[in-house]
Simulated scan of single mutants.
Amino acid sequence: MRPAHLALAVLVAAVWGVNFVVIDIGLDHFPPLLFSALRFLVAALPAVLFVPRPKVALKWVISVGLVLGVAKFGLLFIGIHQGMPAGFSSLVLQIQAVFTALLAITLLGERPSRIRLTGMAIALAGIVVAAVDEGSSGPLGAFALVIAAAAFWGLSNILTRKAAPPDALSWMVWLSLVPPLPLLALSLLFEGPAADLAALRALDWSGAGAVVYVAWISTVFGFGAWGFLLRQYEASAVAPFSLLVPVFGMSSAGLLLGESVSPLRWAAAVLLVGGVAITSTGRRPSRRPDGNHLPPRTRVPSPPAVHGARSPLP
């Protein structure tokens, strides 16, 4: 990978890692469901006017928009709002790789290799350690919400694999049109119109900056740069940089939010990151119908959230 592209991959990981801190800041200004709705609304508009519609069936745009945008991000934002540490969330959310693998086995009939099964077991052990740590020092219910968010992220990865969008940026921009109205309706129902109106009336530069960061920098720039890298290199060369996201997430949360990392949490981090790395790379090689391995040049790099090149976007 060229040095400039290497730097870009690290920058995207840093942007996505710091995004968890920005989410925490934004939740000081908005109810979680309203904040999530604003994130997707600003990500979609006005970008949708300049980005061509992805060449996939509308049903995939809607289904992934609901699963990823409404379920996954709604649960994640509520979990952080209820006390799940932002930096720790960036780590725990990576268990989505295991959910993706399990759903691929269940729904797509994939046969995982022994290496991949080992990686899944290691990552799940990390989640157990993380749950023990969080149960002793924080709200276990908020932890469970982030785990549920990771499960929905895994489902969205499977749906994205079926959709096979050719471009990551146009895919993310257009599916961002789906979540705002359902999220706003849920916000009005559960958070109340008074809370929503109060948050919008009290909007200041800090709150507006949080929305702009999570929408334009994390979503539009992040996905645009990630998609550019996937067009330049094989997915296996780009995917490992996603493991830097919790590194930047936890370190930035420590520096900017004062979040501490206990020894038990470090142990969970080692198990989770190591397990996810093995799970993401320990895939069986693709085969032709006659059983022969496909040569490397016949493989098409997958977009983010597909196979090992999923996007770790928070």
Rank of each mutant, 00 (worst) to 15 (best):
H5K: 06
A13P: 04
V22E: 03
V22C: 05
L27R: 02
H29N: 05
L34N: 03
F35Y: 08
F40H: 07
F40Y: 14
P46H: 07
A47F: 14
L58I: 13
K59F: 14
I62S: 11
L68Y: 11
F73V: 01
L76E: 04
F77Y: 06
I80W: 04
H81Q: 14
Q82E: 12
V92C: 00
V98A: 01
L102T: 03
I105R: 13
S113D: 05
A121I: 04
S136M: 13
G138D: 13
L140H: 09
A148C: 03
A148H: 00
A150D: 00
F152V: 00
F152L: 09
G154Y: 00
K162H: 14
P165F: 09
W171E: 04
L177T: 12
P179I: 13
P179T: 10
L183Q: 03
L183K: 02
L186N: 06
A199S: 14
R201D: 13
D204L: 11
D204C: 08
S206M: 12
A210V: 02
V211K: 00
V214A: 01
S218T: 12
T219K: 00
T219Y: 00
V220L: 08
G222D: 05
L230P: 04
R231A: 08
V238Q: 05
A239K: 07
P240R: 05
S242L: 12
S242T: 14
P246S: 06
S251I: 12
S252W: 09
L256R: 05
E259S: 08
W266A: 09
V276D: 00
A277I: 09
I278V: 15
T279S: 07
G282Q: 12
G291P: 12
P296W: 11
V300L: 11
V300R: 11
P301I: 03
P303E: 10
